[in-house]
Amino acid sequence: MTIFPRSRRNIMSLVKWNPWREIEDVFDRNIKRVPSRLSDLGFATSEDWTPKVDISETDKEFIIKAELPEVKREDVKVTVDKGVLTICGERKQEREEEGKTFHRVERYYGSFTRSFTLPENVDESKVDASYKDGMLNLKIEKTEEAKPTSIEVEIK
């Protein structure tokens, strides 16, 4: 496993550490290797549909890019509530039409939700969202961090 220290630092500043989440991630990564899952047998299930996301940071903002292929703009919703940014939506499956038969379905369909805890140094009211070619791009503006000040306290 390759770790890029700078990238890892940036991601860690965006998400609060939750030990249970790490345990769930390890479980999820390993359970996908079990061949008894329907998706491994050629059947896609809705619980497998989770869009891939990249999170980066500049001096002025955090940038979140989510891959949402074949999801229509009107089927995507982005909300920010109490420091948590949530992306949810749905990729709808093609309906069988007369004369059209599906022999194999490997792509995932259905509803999805991704949530991210925002750091304290962002302005939740200044989230810029754009959507083009199946990519959702979010830019979250940073605020000035409170800088600690040094004061001398008079002892009486």
Rank of each mutant, 00 (worst) to 15 (best):
S125G: 04
V127I: 10
A129K: 10
F112Q: 06
T143Q: 11
E90P: 03
F116L: 03
S111K: 15
S115K: 12
S115F: 08
T113L: 02
D133F: 11
E141R: 14
K100Y: 10
E120P: 11
T79F: 04
D59P: 00
D123W: 14
E70W: 13
R91T: 03
V76R: 00
D128I: 15
S125W: 10
G99Y: 12
G134M: 06
K100E: 11
G99V: 15
P69I: 15
V84D: 01
L68Y: 07
S115R: 13
V71M: 15
T58E: 09
V105M: 01
K72W: 09
V127E: 01
A129Y: 02
E94S: 10
T79V: 13
G83N: 12
L118A: 03
S56A: 09
V122M: 07
G89A: 10
E61G: 04
R107L: 04
Y109V: 02
S56D: 14
D75L: 06
K65S: 14
K126R: 15
C88N: 12
R107C: 01
A66H: 03
R107F: 04
D81M: 06
R107G: 02
S125T: 15
K92A: 06
E74N: 10
Q93E: 13
E106P: 00
I55G: 00
V71H: 06
V127S: 01
F116Q: 02
Y109F: 15
E120H: 12
E145N: 09
R104A: 14
R95W: 07
I140L: 03
T58F: 08
K132E: 05
E70Y: 15
P119C: 04
T143A: 05
P69M: 14
E94H: 12
E106A: 10
E144Q: 13
G99C: 08
L138D: 01
